[in-house]
Every structure is written in structure tokens, then in C-alpha cells.
């Protein structure tokens, strides 16, 4: 069984092909990283998977179900959640409100209008699990330190209890002093969730991934286990000519 698969997935912007016939498989419970130089089409690929962008050609399958033409919210209900490279949060909501909202939507109670929101307790438990500091849970999100906002990105995705999780550069821009919580959260992701990590930080990639796919110019350049990828000359070529990929 394949958790999330694509078949010749293509996206063109005018004459430019950002994602070029990518066929890719993510297995259940996988720890899979997607890497590639800037402009390789990684974020476009994630947007095609999550439904933020429609595909020009090809298919996206989630646990055998064709989701190519499903809108974003329907893909979420089918078990596919994502985080964003650039924070996409609710600035005036508190983290507790945001997570409560996400849980309510997951439970199909988002259209309830005659009573207040429930799931506050579950939201608090989730934030406990992520070691989200108590004092920051009831402040407006916009006032939180950047690292904590990155943690909330992950919390919002986890609140949806996804079967497949797309992490788009979760640690991007987090200052070292604040990165521990984010790293902990990534390390502690539930084992039954298939995770696709898009990341530039090679330390994190090689610590986390059990399989790596390399994207260059919108197409798959290499796909394999971390050791093989680190030794692959084509991958070195793609990154800064001949520079080493991480631990080499």
C-alpha cells in the first residue's frame, strides 16, 4: 500500500514547467525527505499535493484514492495535512483557539453555530505534548517569538490527525536558541504518520530521513537511501557544482 503517490505529476506556469512528470511514492509511516537546489520545484510540488494548486497533468493518489481533483479541504478530511514554509497562521487568534478550531474542523463540527467551541481540553493536551509553553498559549499568535510560531505550524497540522504529513521547511529561519522545540516536535512525530520533509538543512535531513528524493529543474534527479544519495555524483553536481552534500 502506498500512502501518497504521484504519477507523471506536472505543473506548468505559461511556458515554464515547474514540476515535470514527477512520479513519486510515499510509504505508510515513512520518514522521507525531499531535497533539491533553490527553484527545483519543491514548494510547487507540495502545493500540488495539498491541492493549493491544480495540476496541469498527472495524478495524485492518497491511499489508493484519486485525489487529483479534490479541493484542499476535502484532501485534509481524507487525511492529508501540511505546514507552510512561510508562516500561515491566524495572527489575532491565540494558539489555543487556533488548535481548537482545527480539531473542531477535523471532527466535522465547523458549521456548528448554536453553541461554543469544544475540544479545548484536547487542544491543551496536544500543546502539552509539543512542550508548548503555557504562558504563550493564550497570547495572540502575532506576538509570539518566531520559533514558537513555527511550532504552532506543526501543532495545527497534527491537530488534524493526518495519515500523511507534508512539512515544508519546518525549521526555516528559526534561530538556534529556539530551534530545540521544533526539532523535538519533528523527532516525536507519531510513527504511523507518513512524513514528507522538504528541507534545506542537510543535518536535519540526514538525521531524520530514511529515504530521500532529490528534485532538480522540476524532475526527479535521484531517489534512494540517505547513504546512496550522499554519494551520488549527480546530486553533488546539482548542489553547487561539486560541493559535498552534508556528511559526505
Amino acid at each position: 500500500m502506498i500512502a501518497l503517490g504521484t504519477c507523471h505529476l506536472t505543473r506548468r506556469f505559461g511556458g515554464f514547467t515547474a514540476v515535470d512528470a514527477v512520479s513519486f511514492n510515499l510509504l505508510p509511516g515513512a520518514r522521507h525527505a525531499l531535497i533539491g537546489p533553490n527553484g527545483a520545484g519543491k514548494t510547487t510540488f507540495v502545493n500540488l499535493l495539498s491541492g493549493a494548486l491544480p495540476a496541469s497533468e498527472g495524478q495524485v493518489m492518497l491511499f489508493g484514492q484519486d485525489i487529483t481533483h479534490l479541493p484542499q479541504h476535502a484532501r485534509v478530511r481524507a487525511g492529508l495535512a501540511r505546514t507552510f514554509q512561510v508562516n500561515q497562521l491566524f495572527p489575532q487568534f491565540t494558539p489555543l483557539e487556533s488548535v481548537t478550531l482545527a480539531i473542531g474542523e477535523r471532527e466535522g463540527q465547523g458549521a456548528t453555530w448554536w453553541r461554543g467551541a469544544r475540544h479545548g481540553a484536547e487542544a491543551a493536551r496536544l500543546l502539552d505534548d509539543l512542550h508548548f509553553p503555557e504562558a504563550d498559549r493564550t497570547r495572540p499568535t502575532a506576538e509570539l517569538p518566531y520559533g514558537r510560531q513555527r511550532l504552532l505550524e506543526i501543532a495545527l497540522a497534527l491537530a488534524l490527525k493526518p495519515r500523511v504529513l507534508l512539512l515544508d521547511e519546518p525549521a526555516a529561519g528559526v534561530p538556534p536558541a529556539e530551534s530545540r522545540e521544533v526539532m523535538q516536535a519533528i523527532a516525536a512525530l507519531p510513527r504511523d504518520v507518513a512524513v514528507l520533509l522538504i528541507e534545506h538543512d542537510m543535518d536535519l535531513v540526514f538525521r531524520f530521513a530514511e529515504r530521500i528524493t532529490v528534485l532538480a529543474f522540476g524532475a526527479v534527479l535521484a531517489d534512494g537511501e540517505p547513504d546512496a544519495i550522499a554519494k551520488d555524483p549527480r546530486v553533488r553536481e546539482a548542489y553547487l557544482g561539486t560541493a559535498e552534500v552534508a556528511h559526505g
Binding site: 484542499q72 500561515q88 491566524f90 489575532q92 487556533s98 477535523r106 465547523g110 495545527l156 488534524l160
Partner: peptide, 16 residues
């Protein structure tokens, strides 16, 4: 309110 604050994220947590 969530849609007003950030429609992108709203869709990403399953809000139609």
C-alpha cells in the same frame, strides 16, 4: 474569523 485572518491556512485545516 479564521478565513478573514488567513484563507490559505483556513483551507489547509479543512475549512471549506
Amino acid at each position: 474569523r479564521a478565513i478573514r485572518e488567513n484563507p490559505k491556512r483556513a483551507a489547509a485545516i479543512g475549512i471549506p
